[in-house]
Design a protein around this nucleic acid. Structure first.
Length: 383
DNA sequence: GCTACAAGTGGTCGGGGACC
DNA sequence: GGTCCCCGACCACTTGTAGC
């Protein structure tokens, strides 16, 4: 639909300024968003609610939210508008309509400080027991990418490190907004659950805050009483931390590199054939794993070799992996824990295109891809 | 519509530490 | 020493899908 309207020179200059920032694809998109925002404002006022631009939660509320507990004075839930401004059916809206924290735009690529890689207990060639693999619940890599991006943005304000609870709260809060967008995309394009983009992201449907808490703890960071930081980002050595009562998180050089790579979902459009990672991202991540994350490198190799050897179903793979658990550790590895570890590792490998899940009826078969075969054939890194 | 299966994720419980 | 609370480990429920 084409709409003509009178526009003052001042308004025209403001629109030009906004378009020059690169966050809107066209005047049409900019106006559509402005109208949607006006609807939100007017609805807020008609509901008798106050609206404060730039309102921030108190530190106490942030910590409570990050822990998944209701704060004593809950804040009003942020309202979002689900629209398809151009009516094309294609999701042309980009992530910035929901959150700028996950965008490449606006990141300072030059003035950045990097943390050193976290220490690795395992040396090249060592067998890593299944219970010491990356935790199975860290089962998706798009949230890992999003959190790296989020941290990169937060580090603009404090390059020496972000308090872990501030980072967990800010990133998990915006992850809800991103989760809504991805959920909508999955639904609109009927993306099946094996390839769903929204898996592991919290969304605004969940009122309990538990999904957000899980995201904060697993895909940003959590800290135990000893002050040790855990979570997928540190497991993958994409972040390190400065110890203290409130450890500060900082991206490692690998974390920065990963955060600054363009991503098909976060930086482009979400469509029916969207892929989670670019070739460049996959290549970088696999090289990083092979060189720096020995537990994950070992897990990928163990699973791929088992699949190539014929253990290509969940049951067969579980049986084979169980045989590899040393006797003294079998009590630690229950069947459900084993399947959780296997399922998580396979999901991560699927995200990277190392394996494919093929469904025949209700049965699943795992197939190694060419990339997967290349991975097991590549030389193990040596120190 | 019922059943089976796989994967994802929220819930639960035990252990350990903090506090009184 | 007792109680409470938090955290980590892992259990089991929920969801989605397909066959019959």
């Amino acid at each position: 639909m084409i709409i003509c309207f009178d526009c003052s020179g001042k308004t025209n200059a403001m629109m030009d300024e906004l378009l020059a920032r690169g966050r809107y694809a066209s005047v049409s998109e900019l106006i559509s968003i402005a109208i949607a925002n006006q609807v939100v404002l007017e609805t807020q006022v008609s509901d008798g609610e106050s609206l404060t631009i730039g309102e921030r939660e108190s530190v106490k509320q942030k910590v409570s939210a990050a822990n998944g507990k209701p704060s004593s004075k809950p804040t009003k839930k942020r309202r979002t508008v689900r629209e398809d401004p151009d009516g094309s059916g294609q999701s042309h809206r980009r992530v910035e309509q929901k959150s700028v924290l996950f965008l490449l735009d606006g990141l300072d690529t030059l003035n950045r400080l990097s943390g050193s890689l976290p220490d690795d207990y395992w040396t090249p060639g060592m067998e890593v027991p299944l219970d010491r693999w990356v935790f199975g619940q860290h089962n998706k890599l798009l949230p890992v990418k999003a959190s790296c991006r989020g941290l990169a943005h937060l580090l603009k304000d404090d390059p020496k490190g972000i308090f872990y609870d501030d980072a967990a709260n800010r990133i998990s809060g915006d992850a809800i907004i991103l989760g809504d967008l991805l959920l909508e995309c999955d639904g609109k394009h009927k993306i099946d659950r094996d390839k769903a983009l929204s898996t592991a992201f919290p969304n605004s449907i969940d009122k309990s805050g538990k999904a957000r808490s899980r995201y904060a703890n697993q895909f940003v960071a959590s800290v135990n009483k000893q002050g040790q930081v855990s979570g997928a980002l540190i497991d993958f050595k994409l972040i390190n931390y400065k110890p203290g009562k409130r450890p500060r998180l900082i991206l490692t050089e690998s974390g920065w590199e990963f955060a600054l790579m363009r991503n098909p979902i976060l930086d482009e459009h979400c469509g029916p054939h969207s892929i989670k990672f670019s070739e460049e991202e996959v290549k970088f991540f696999l090289n990083h794993i092979a060189a720096n994350v020995r537990a994950e490198d070992f897990a990928y190799r163990a699973i791929l070799q088992a699949i190539v050897g014929g253990a290509n179903t969940p049951d067969l793979l579980d049986t084979m992996l169980r045989q590899s658990v040393p006797d003294e550790r079998t009590q630690r590895v229950t069947l459900s824990f084993l399947s959780s570890q296997r399922s998580g590792a396979v999901s991560r490998m699927s995200d990277l295109g190392l394996v494919e899940r093929v469904r025949e009826g209700v049965r699943v078969t795992y197939l190694p891809t060419d990339l997967g075969r290349d991975f097991i054939n590549r030389e193990r890194p040596q120190e």
